[in-house]
Design a protein around this nucleic acid. Structure first.
Lengths: 237, 237, 237, 237
DNA sequence: CATGAATGAGTGTTCATTCAT
DNA sequence: CATGAATGAACACTCATTCAT
């Protein structure tokens, strides 16, 4: 095999700064692979997604994928970690700046959450986590700490604000937060499971569902003097 | 408990007369298979469960399983019918017989549902469906028709009763039913995903969660004149 | 197990005359099974026929079939042996009685063969033999001796008669007979293979095919003074 | 014999320059697989041949087979195309170039067919099809379209040429073609069924059989003025 | 670095055969 | 005699992973 290694650059380009700008140098392979994998994992689930398909969608060969991720499971872990970074800092800041009623804040929270996350690919991650939590306990724990807890805390801040301002009744905030989260997660889960297969009756209009959810959160089903919650400028597009 | 109970344990049958009525004895195979299948489906998911394993756990051979269930999907459907959809008749009858307030009825519904299903293996089925729906559209459709629809209808009957009796405010019943279902499903989903792996903070006390859920369903978070819902004897353990 | 063997006739009915009237005594099981098996073997082939189906068509259980035939292969052997008994005696007698021209005799032979065998289930046996000959060499040999050879001999008698009477040219009778047999077998084979599946173009009209065959046998394709073979009263329905 | 011959034996390739033109070298896998498949299909039938066995005989793993042929049926079709249907182009060209009498052409056709196909493993394919046609309608249809039809058409071209040149009598070409095909198929069928098991009397000398066939095709059995078919140099061994 | 040919363990389903009753 | 429940070997096809080039 004389002169059979054309164009080989064996002495690898010695990255000086470990992480910072890894997104452009050399090849953007890992990023493209992660994007492709997110798409497919969300679309078809972990088990049903073939690595070859991920590689194809990222425009590389199957072998290349295994160059970057030692196994399909590692790819999955990377995908989840990549996509659930800290949006909570930003959201907590929004909370701090908010000046309207807590009713409005809750409304804003729900619709805005759906708009920013629910309508994107990222909305598939909760379903992914739910499905694979048992198989990836360490990831589940990671998700619990990095997503569920902060989310719960943020919601609790809202609820506490409402109680503090006399807008909400006193409550157990831990469980109250879950009551707000549950329908949101349910909506995302539904969208990526039953909602995709049973065309007719299984359709849920997110806007209507969230509106109903909000109404119930604030007033319950019980008969009472209806509240005059006037929609404010915070109502999302 | 006459000897016709579907889940009759085999060793309990104790046939006194050897042959005469061999037309009913048959074998407890189907029941054992259904139990084994429920265990494994919930534990590992539909796709990841091997029929051979189900058969082995039921103490029969792979061939025997296919004697009773023509396919893996049929086995799954039988499991769902045995544990969920087959019970709607009974639940609707309970609804018809119920005489208390609709508040009580909703309370009874929630706690009773958790007691009868939530605490059993069957509570894993919703998670199962969420996970596998995309990859098994046939099963998803089946579940939609045999579980989601009837469940939704049953909840709607309760809500309509409440409205008719002046206990609940008018509402969009379709979405109202989802609002009741969502937290129940969330509880079941949680138990079988995040709840199993992240021991500490991820624990949700079902009773407290359901109580919070009920309170919110009836009154919302908003500040209002407290309702006089008198807890009745129907409240389960 | 007291008195558990009802109606048992253990001391088997001791057939005095081995074979003669085995068709009525006791049960007609074996005969019905053989008939059912012939139907199904011809229709679907040996491998694709399930013993359960044979038993069902004969109105007995699968277990009963194995009571009479130790294995599926044995059943096959019995079917072939049962159905290719000596029709040749009768046909040779017909030959002896025949008084017309040998042209007419050949015509009569072809059309009559098709009518009496080709249109019945028995026409499927050649195909069966062809398909399974390798797997049942002893049967193939049996078939060779009991069917092929006598058939060949009978055809040769016709050809020799034709030559002796100056109607046919001299020829190698062994191969001549095969030339007559080949299209007949071909017709039967076709009917039970390609003819059954490819509806349109694969259809062969037996009457036209046999007529063409006869014409060619007598005259060939070559240009010659056409013979005045006037169809006689022997032309079949 | 340039290196593009489809059946090129692997050890013969002897790459001189390691990499440069690696785009053509590929591997001899498909050819080896087709050869192994032909052997086994002919030997044991389509249904009874296990793909793993084909792969093993070709010296590759089961997975590799499916790398080249998406399914067992596709493998079969490839075998048929490689050995039969792919050659009709060549045969039609031979027809176009032929300049002798149509008698000679028919002779050439028969003997050449036997030499090129009859003496090879490929001669087992017709029997294969006859046996499996009912159980694999897709294959039957394929064979009908890719083999039967073109073969029939080719024969018809010969017959029509004979009639056009005044060598053959007018006839129904469809059935005429079958009359030519039938004995050829019979010969191939015989070789692979009865011919294999009943050593002694079941032997058919192909040369003599074909000669008899040809003689009969041209002249029939009837007494007539002998034709002056001068055997030409085209007569094969 | 990148490729893609090769692998082989794994799985749902069928069906001839057995045997306790 | 007759049954039918039970068996388990067999088989086509998939896909994550490896590795020579």
């Amino acid at each position: 095999m004389p002169s059979t290694a054309p164009h080989s650059h064996p002495q690898a380009v010695a990255l000086t700064d470990g992480q910072a700008r890894r997104s452009r140098r050399k090849s953007a392979r890992p990023g493209e692979l992660l994007a492709a994998a997110l798409d497919l994992f969300v679309e078809k689930g972990f088990a049903a997604t073939r690595v070859e398909e991920v590689a194809a969608r990222a425009g590389v060969s199957k072998g290349t994928l295994f160059l970057y991720f030692p196994s399909k499971e590692d790819l999955f872990k990377a995908v989840v970690r990549e996509n659930i970074s800290g949006r909570f800092v930003e959201w907590n800041e929004e909370f701090d700046r908010f000046e309207g009623s807590t009713h409005d804040m809750l409304r804003y929270c729900l619709f805005n959450w759906w708009e920013r996350l629910g309508t994107t690919k990222a909305s598939g991650i909760p379903k992914l986590m739910m499905s694979e939590a048992q198989n990836f306990p360490e990831l589940a724990s990671f998700y619990q700490h990095e997503v569920i807890q902060p989310g719960n805390t943020l919601i609790q801040r809202i609820l506490k604000r409402g109680v503090a301002r006399g807008e909400f009744r006193p409550m157990d905030f831990t469980y109250g937060a879950y009551l707000v989260l549950a329908p949101m997660l349910f909506l995302a889960l539904w969208k990526h499971s039953l909602g995709t297969c049973c065309g007719d009756h299984a359709q849920l209009d997110p806007q209507k569902y969230l509106a109903a959810q909000l109404d119930m959160l604030l007033h319950g089903f019980g008969v009472q003097t209806p509240l005059m919650t006037t929609p404010t400028e915070h109502t999302p597009t």
